[in-house]
Amino acid sequence: MKKEQQIDLYYQMVLIRRLEERGAELYQQGKIGGFMHLYIGQEAVSTGLIAAREPRDRVITAYRDHGVALNCGISANEVMAELLGKATGMSKGKGGSMHMADTSKNMWGGHAIVGGHLPIASGFAIGDQYAGNDNITICMFGDGATNIGYFHEALNIAKTWGLRVLWVCENNQYGMGTAVDRASAVTDIRQKAEGYGMKNGQVDGMDVLKVYDAAKDALDYVRKNSQPYLLEIDTYRFRGHSMGDPERYRKAEEVKKWQENDPIGIFNKQLLEKKVATAKVLDEIEARVEEEIAKAVEFAEASPEPAAEELYSDIYAD
């Protein structure tokens, strides 16, 4: 991968991290409400994955969607505005943290019903197959989502009909407080594809370049063969499931151990060691992100609340 692109991936990861850290503060101050699920610790997953897509490939994910939104090119301003429920958010303040989408960037949403978006992803691929194009739908979901019927129905139809879907399981080891082995009959999630005769793979989700390479290969396979593929990406969320999670289900040492594998720290080291970037360049990225986030918060706070009439807009298209 070209130097500039690597540096850009680093920038994206830092942007996600800092935006969410700021978001957590704003949540504590009561400026953000509802459920907010942080992506901190998992940044390498969507950053590497989405970097590997063609712009025409669609992305759909669950409620842990801030990082995915930023990687797809939605601005920090809009993400922050949506978090604050402002009219300038991409969902006009009506969706909130869990519901970020911008179809012009081929980001088809955060979706809050676990597993519910998987058959919809199959549907995107049905639509694209019908249209005769070779777009791929990249569908991201958690380990917990592989235990609900939606997952199995969606994978089965995708394989049976030869749908171009890249199924991406972000295995962050827990669905809320339930460890994978307490909820899933197999702990290697990729194995679940075998029952559907679907090609599959697994990659370390703390290393953004490994994620990128695995995603590239998987996307190539899907596009060429017109077949789905399940990619399991192993990762860890450093924060609670959502804001206010008492985290009684895991030990502090376990979290600490994973934090030593911080995807941003790992990539920082790689970039320096391989002389892709100097420390100065990486510091400048920090500063640039800092400024961008400050501006986003300013933008969001200064933005208007949705007008009262907005309550009744967009209920129907006709």
């Binding site: 409400g33 429920g85 303040g93 519901h99 949705p306 907005e310 309550l311 209920i315």
Partner: peptide, 16 residues
Amino acid sequence: QKEVPLPYNRTLEQAA
């Protein structure tokens, strides 16, 4: 409840 899907924004939600 007003005949709308409930919005996220606090003011709109309370209005509904």
